[in-house]
């Protein structure tokens, strides 16, 4: 059995998830590795087609065919201290992991809430599936869960259907459902993207507080660097299926060692930088071109066609290089950044 340092809950090691479509292969996740430590939050950040969601679905083993894990390990430390490789687990064993050990929340709460059952029934079902509690005991626990996620009038809300709740309230109900079996790891796939900023702030605040109270780890999938700065300890930046930069959140925002991460931060409008002394608008610095399709990746570095630092060597695929201690960059020119 594989080894895992004591403070690590999840280790994704050289994961490759491919979608085979006839003779063509989409390498949606291509050699991705990262660790999630106990009680910490790792953000996987990327744009459309970066592979961030496929990474999270691989960990939950929720890939729909033709998606398939073709290589790599997903090592997970269970509550009773065993280390499992999720990548090779049977679906039967996986069912014992999902919900109880690892829970997931989505952008759209209606993907995990059933519109035909009350919120209470769904949480009660989840609790009783994993724990031998009576209906009454489970209902009490469900009410406590709604209180934990700060849903007012929890007792009454238990008997409501999802459609009777607002978007922010549904998101809370989904979090309550996900946390009802005390998972050690929460995978949150763009959980605040569809929400208004004031509600987003509430949910991020809630996740931070729950993490401090329960000590769970969070894998947070997002495209929003502002949210990353707000919640993450470590960051994995993905582009076209690969990790291009990986370090602590603090270090990433201080000093980007990959031209893509640098470009992403430079193109978010910031009036303090992008307006001149008399308030006139300066031009923004966009990344030229478009995000490539994983079905048609350029040769060598996938970012090279859009990169201002491109040199001849970029036709050769760069490995993930150590730019400085605890800071990886998939760029030949990381020293020039």
């Amino acid at each position: 059995m594989s080894e895992l340092p004591a403070d690590i809950v999840l280790r994704v090691d050289r994961l490759r998830t491919h979608f085979e479509l006839g003779s063509r292969v989409a390498k949606s996740v291509d050699d991705v590795s990262f660790d999630v430590r106990r009680g910490e939050t790792v953000a996987v950040v990327g744009e459309s087609g970066s592979g961030k969601s496929v990474t999270s679905l691989s960990i939950m083993r929720l890939l729909a065919p033709p998606g398939r894990i073709v290589e790599g390990e997903i090592l997970y430390r269970t509550s009773d201290g065993r280390i499992l490789d999720i990548a090779t687990l049977s679906q039967k064993d996986m069912r014992r992991i999902r919900g109880r050990e690892i829970a997931m929340i989505f952008q759209e709460p209606m993907t995990s809430l059933n519109p035909l059952y009350t919120v209470g029934d769904q949480i009660i079902e989840m609790i009783r599936l994993h724990e031998p509690l009576s209906k009454l005991e489970a209902r009490k626990r469900a009410r406590q869960m709604l209180e934990l996620v700060e849903i007012p009038a929890a007792e009454r809300r238990l008997d409501e259907y999802p459609h009777q709740m607002s978007g922010g309230m549904r998101q809370r109900a989904m979090i309550a459902l996900a946390l009802s079996c005390n998972p050690k790891l929460l995978i949150a796939d763009e959980p605040t993207t569809a929400l208004d900023v004031t509600i987003q702030a509430q949910i991020l605040d809630l996740l931070r507080r729950l993490q401090a109270e329960i000590g769970m780890s969070i894998l947070f999938i997002t495209h929003n660097l502002g949210v990353v700065a707000d919640i993450a300890h470590d960051v994995v930046v993905m582009y076209a299926g690969r990790v291009v930069e990986q370090t602590s959140s603090e270090r990433l925002f201080e000093h980007q060692k990959h031209p893509y991460s640098r470009g992403l931060l430079a193109c978010i409008p910031d009036a303090s930088r992008d307006r001149g002394p008399s308030g006139e608008r300066l031009r923004l610095n966009p990344i030229p071109g478009n995000v490539p399709s994983v079905m048609a990746l350029p040769k060598g570095c996938s970012f090279a066609p859009r990169c201002p630092l491109r040199i001849a060597r970029c036709e050769e695929d760069p490995p993930l290089l150590v730019a400085e201690p605890h800071h990886l960059s998939r760029c030949w020119r990381h020293d020039d950044l």
Binding site: P152, S166, G167, G168, M169, D196, V197, T198, I199, Q200, A201, Q202, L204, D205, N224, L225, G226, V227, V228, A229, D230, S249, E250, F253, L265, I268
Partner: peptide, 20 residues
């Protein structure tokens, strides 16, 4: 409430209660 891409921007955040 608007998140800014800077972990050191510790602003005085006002978290509103409830929904619109």
């Amino acid at each position: 409430a608007a998140p800014v891409p800077n972990p050191k921007a510790h602003r005085q955040r006002v978290i509103l209660q409830g929904d619109i």
